[in-house]
């Protein structure tokens, strides 16, 4: 195959994949926005995706907030501007790191789990069984996961924002000699509600991406146990990449005004 053919072929492959992801997403959204809903399945997924991700997201946030504080303190020192560290940390966490880190942890934890579970159901004909039992797998499997991720990732992000800022606060007050009340006051006075809201809007989109990639790759898994393994890997990698891409696009939209 000559290089032109190779490029052509992989472009076509990419377009085909994009098309089938879009169709899958459309069916998933359609099933999410119309009845019947499976409330039991949704509750289960809210717990699995949201509640059980709290420790991972919290730990990531506290360490990142602390490390960010140290770095910005050092960087600020080069301009004799150490004192604005609390504001920069707060901005960095709420606008960028809170949403992105929470989404990445979910890409690892949740995309993988969704792909593995739905992929195993595909491999063992459980998805075929759902169809023969007059139950749409998009309603029973895909929609609850999409809804749960879109609802819970912003909540997780709010937690990550809070804990991340607290991580910065701890380092600042314990090792850098900042005054506690002043740190809180500076952060609070500086942040606008849009700093926080824009991060939460991003995270709802990231939640959709994370659940969609898990479900898409799991649903289309083929080839037994190896296929399920492959689906899991693809889900995590594609979720992470799409989160970064969406982050850039949304951020440039949000900062354009």
């Amino acid at each position: 195959m000559n290089p032109v053919q190779a490029v052509g072929r992989s472009t076509l492959g990419l377009l085909r994949t994009a098309g089938s992801v879009a169709i899958f997403a459309g069916r998933g959204v359609g099933a999410s926005l119309s009845t019947p809903w499976f409330a039991g399945q949704l509750a289960r997924q809210v717990v699995a995706i949201g509640y059980l991700s709290l420790p991972v997201v919290g730990l990531t946030a506290v360490f990142t907030g602390a490390a960010l504080a140290l770095n910005i303190y050092t960087g600020g020192g080069r301009f004799n501007a150490e004192q604005i560290m609390p504001q920069i940390v707060a901005l960095g966490i709420t606008r960028e790191l809170g949403p992105v880190l929470a989404a990445l942890m979910l890409a690892g934890r949740v995309s993988a789990a969704i792909a593995a579970e739905i992929g195993a159901m595909r491999a063992t004909e459980q998805i075929d069984a759902l169809n023969t039992l007059s139950t749409d797998p998009f309603r029973y499997l895909v929609a609850p996961r999409l809804i749960a991720a879109v609802l819970t990732l912003p909540l997780l992000t709010a937690v990550a924002d809070t804990i991340g800022v607290a991580g910065g606060f701890l380092v600042a007050t314990q090792t850098l000699g900042f005054s506690g009340p002043l740190y809180v006051q500076n952060t609070w006075n500086f942040l606008t509600s849009w700093d926080i809201e824009s991060g939460l809007i991003k995270s709802a989109v990231f939640g959709f991406i994370v659940a969609l990639m898990g479900a898409y790759h799991g649903y289309n898994a083929s080839g037994g146990a190896r296929g399920v393994g492959r689906a899991t890997t693809h889900a995590v990698v594609s979720a992470a990449i799409l989160v970064f891409a969406a982050d850039y696009i949304l951020t440039s939209l949000f900062t354009a005004k």
Binding site: T124, Q126, D128, A129, T132, L133, S134
Partner: peptide, 13 residues
């Protein structure tokens, strides 16, 4: 679909 029943090879429970 309600007219059909199916027993899958691996039971597919």
């Amino acid at each position: 679909n309600a007219r059909f029943g199916m027993l899958f090879q691996g039971a597919a429970l």
